[in-house]
Design a protein around this nucleic acid. Structure first.
Lengths: 348, 348
DNA sequence: CCATCCTTGTCAACCGGTTGCCAAAAATTG
DNA sequence: CAATTTTTGGCAACCGGTTGACAAGGATGG
């Protein structure tokens, strides 16, 4: 365990005259070990470039001085910062929590630090934030970016960029393959006697909302169900409540929503209006966010492995940084239906 | 809007021979403006040190070259990075989501970038992460830290540190004042005819769990209720389910839990066992996390303004960085009872 | 035993800013 | 108009590493 209490009082680095504790530099080590600073640099970062003997001496000295590289001094000539940036559209949206966590954990395991920024759903803010981050990180991950393809390609030309939840020609992407999960959902609904399906769409600028609708449409066709597309005002609990009336009017007995928040809001509003879920209407959400199982009944949902998306994105990014090639095709991660209580047999 | 497409082809900075786009330096600007690099540096960072005329010339040149400072080059001599670190105990714990968001938003507004790390509830990991971050950020925020006071003080001696959700002598802290919220909760329960109260505690190493218990005990005494303390295995939904039996056996008709997750798990388990909430038992959570209103009935809870904690912590940190003094006392933010459906009159 | 090659450490330049010190230029004052 | 003070810009050192070029030292081979 790192010992924080001993500032190495014996052979203090002593740089600033005052009592300030400043960390040791490679020059301090060099002096202590009796070699040239550049040798220290090599010993510490170029394995094999220095004889085992000197290596040992230098490492001991470094240890004794409690040396830590100054990341900025290193970054200046090399450009490498051991840092990756992550930009999410909305920090409050739980969809991103898992992505953040996956990215942080994976990065951390490979000694990279995560730098986080939010675009607040604004394409302009996103571009600005991306530009700002790009200069200080080794690579960038964009989760559900709102800016247009060209901007992303421009960033990508500068430094490695990986995109989550969207496919962009020429940029490595990690995208949940919605088809599997959706067909499971639709098949399950069909098996339970449903015939009229509704899809509640998300925001127009989200690439995913269209993708999911296509999946639903195709699966419904295959299972010989009818499918109607309804629009929501915003992809939140509130938005879900607001679309409830439309859902009822559509006559659908099963609803798949763009995301879980919509599903939860919709369910709350329908239940408040006296509808029984799932007896009278089945509701299936999307993503399996935190809290999806807090509802009564618990929400059936198509799980997107968001955490894995974060993990994969970081992995790809770090691989690219190490000189590997990025996957040509978008990397797809599997989705699956999680059956809970909000969907089931129709009991009219 | 930032124009990403024009790399300034006309007067390209031209540094690396190859087609690589490297951004312009102050030397490029100096040449273009016909002044010394140091003058450029001053014009760009020391307002007033340079005559208005030269200032203008330099700014124009910078604009034309699409100049951006190199943060590392600046950080090297100054130590300033325009960056703050945030360490949370558990990224998956929704309690921290709001803190993260508050911190990111506030920092961003004052042109600071947020660097995020997780300790995975381990004191050792936390110390390591803190050490690693500390060297690259201007200041550090520790949310519900798990390491001991001395380690925190050691960090604090190095660079400004602000702690959230814990009080430590000599370190600026932001702590929700639980008393107001708790007394509201207990008074409300007493008014609803409850007499036996139980408190479900959280993890022992959490400073907050004790604090909350004391609040509950004091408020119960004041309102002439009995209060029993029960232990949970872990502060999660699962932990809540596991403690349900004990709660029943305690004979309490009202429960206050260390956090919302426990409350939600507890409620699910009790309901699964046939108990009616709130008719037979009232449940009050803590924090008002995302999803607390997804349950049926929606959870009554003592809201901790976590987002505000993040905001306040960043504000204090940046103030300190600007030379202001840190508040002597721990800054306390108000908690309040949010009455929803899970608490109410006892109907036996 | 000397020529040759490989290993290993040193020198010095460089990354891109910041800043103390000084002198030239401008402004103020008598 | 000269003397003095205040601005303003330039010089050069420095932050703490990295790295190409090179030479000294050691091992190997003929």
């Amino acid at each position: 365990m790192t010992d924080l209490t001993s500032p190495g009082a014996a052979t203090a680095p002593t740089k600033r005259g005052r009592g300030e504790k400043s960390s040791a530099t490679i020059y301090d080590i060099a002096k202590l070990a009796g070699v040239n600073p550049s040798t220290v640099s090599r010993a510490l970062s170029k394995p094999g470039r220095v004889s085992a003997k000197t290596q040992k001496i230098i490492e001991d000295a470094a240890e004794q001085l409690n040396y830590q590289v100054n990341p900025f001094a290193r970054a200046l000539p090399t450009g490498r910062t051991q840092t990756i940036g992550l930009i999410v559209a909305d920090i409050t949206n739980p969809t991103f929590f898992d992505i953040i966590r996956g990215a942080e954990t994976t990065g951390s395991a490979r000694d990279y630090t995560l730098v986080l920024a939010e675009s607040a759903e604004s394409p302009e803010t996103e571009v600005t934030a991306a530009r700002r981050l790009l200069s200080t990180v080794d690579g960038l991950i964009l989760a559900s970016p709102r800016m247009d393809d060209d901007h992303i390609r421009a960033l990508s030309a500068d430094k490695p960029v990986v995109v989550i939840n969207r496919e962009i020609e020429g940029v490595p992407c990690v995208v949940p393959d919605v088809n599997k999960g959706i067909s499971e959902a639709v098949r399950s609904l069909a098996a339970n006697g449903h015939q009229k399906l509704a899809y509640v769409a998300g925001p127009a600028q989200s690439w995913m909302t269209g993708r999911r609708w296509e999946g639903v449409k195709a699966a419904a066709e295959w299972s010989k169900l009818s499918a109607a597309r309804l629009e929501s005002s915003k992809p939140t609990v509130d938005g879900g409540r607001q679309v409830a009336r439309e859902v009822l009017e559509s006559g659908a007995t099963a609803v798949i929503t763009y995301n879980d928040l919509l599903a939860i809001g919709l369910m709350q509003e329908l239940q408040a209006g006296g509808m029984r879920v799932p007896d009278q209407i089945s509701i299936v959400g999307f993503d399996d966010i935190f809290g999806a199982d807090f509802t009564t009944p618990a929400l059936t949902t198509v799980r997107s492995p968001l955490g894995e998306c974060g993990t994969r994105a970081v992995t790809i990014l770090l691989d690219v940084l190490q000189g590997h090639d990025a996957p040509e095709e978008a990397v797809s991660v599997e989705t699956e239906l999680v059956v809970r209580g909000s969907s089931g047999r129709l009991l009219t």
